[in-house]
Design a protein around this nucleic acid. Structure first.
Lengths: 186, 186
DNA sequence: TTTATAAGTATCGACTCGATACCATATAGC
DNA sequence: GCTATATGGTATCGAGTCGATACTTATAAA
């Protein structure tokens, strides 16, 4: 069998293990994914639409998942007074504690047992495949703010950095988070 | 971020893409996985128990998934006359046609666009991580028959090969299929 | 002002999933 | 041979995902 095909089968099996692992930890796989995303997303990206794009699913499904997480006391929603259609999502402390025990760590541990060179090679290979797969289906990469073509480091107007697209000041921690608007440099 | 952690995140996102892709193709992700397994499993492994072990889920869930696939006319179940508790599953022609259009191929295509060396490295890395992850959670590897410690090539009694565990003759195609009983050589 | 668009929500039906309870069949102990 | 137990599957429940459809409300555009 060619290696591209084996990779796919291996990927499928690892995905299944990931699913089982997270299922066993009290939350559904999708709920974990939402939690992880929200913990890593910046303030422009912690809303239902961005999560919908990230998960590649539909608004309705995301709405239900967020309801389930809200019922469990893992997040709170609040409407933006500037544009009352927007909903901002904040994770609760409870959610952050749960994320510390995220069962996905088991997979990271398994990977960490590889020799350093192989680890880096694996990450590179996966990154390329993901980018290619996203390209083919028109998905967004969801990179971090500071890797964006609109990112302006060392803003002159006081703030550490600035977003050239939304024209807002950015903190250092902002710049390290995921952004829906992120676009690779040309 | 260390590369083990990035790998996990990349894996998570690829798993999600895989899920979306298969969802869009009319069957649930789990149904596709069952179909794929059944198509690649040998005659000792095409039953609910083996599929349960492969998917790492419970008998009840598998039973329901098989019912759903049966309703769709993608498989038939028949009880083994020798041991009437056993159920053997056969895929229909319809199922094999569907598998030809398996949406998972998109991921294989994406991987195939990598340079040959990176492709092989990716497959190796994934294999090691999978084995490590399986080891940690006590799962079985589900290798193909001919890689088993009980596999006896060139059987003297007429049949091409032989299984030293179940003590039965094996065809050449048998030996290339997945077996629940498969164990790596010591 | 009307119209269009954007952001979310609610509801439906099919399905997964773990848990529990259950049934039929086969094997072991005596 | 006869009961106890283990094995292989199934049925049902409740919570949740998922896509589809329909809907509400809020902003933007004509």
């Amino acid at each position: 069998m060619e290696s591209a095909e084996s990779s796919t089968i291996l990927l499928e099996r690892l995905a299944r293990i990931l699913q089982n692992e997270t299922h066993a930890a009290g939350l559904k796989p999708t709920q974990w994914e939402a939690l992880r995303y929200l913990a890593r997303a910046n303030r422009f990206s912690r809303n239902p639409s961005a999560l919908t794009a990230y998960l590649g699913t539909t608004k309705g499904t995301v709405s239900q998942t967020l309801n389930a997480l809200e019922r469990k006391g893992l997040l709170v929603k609040k409407t933006d007074p500037a544009d009352r259609r927007h909903v901002d999502i904040d994770l609760t402390e409870k959610a952050r504690h749960r994320l510390d025990e995220d069962p996905i760590h088991a997979l990271t541990d398994a990977t960490a047992s590889l020799p350093a060179g192989e680890q880096a090679g694996l990450a590179d290979g996966l990154r390329t495949v993901l980018e290619e797969a996203l390209r083919r289906r028109g998905g967004r990469p969801f990179g971090v703010c500071r890797s964006c073509r609109f990112f302006r480091a060392d803003d002159s107007q006081g703030a550490p950095h600035r977003c050239g697209l939304l024209d807002v000041p950015l903190s250092d921690s902002d710049s390290r988070q995921i952004c829906v608007e992120q676009q690779a440099p040309c």
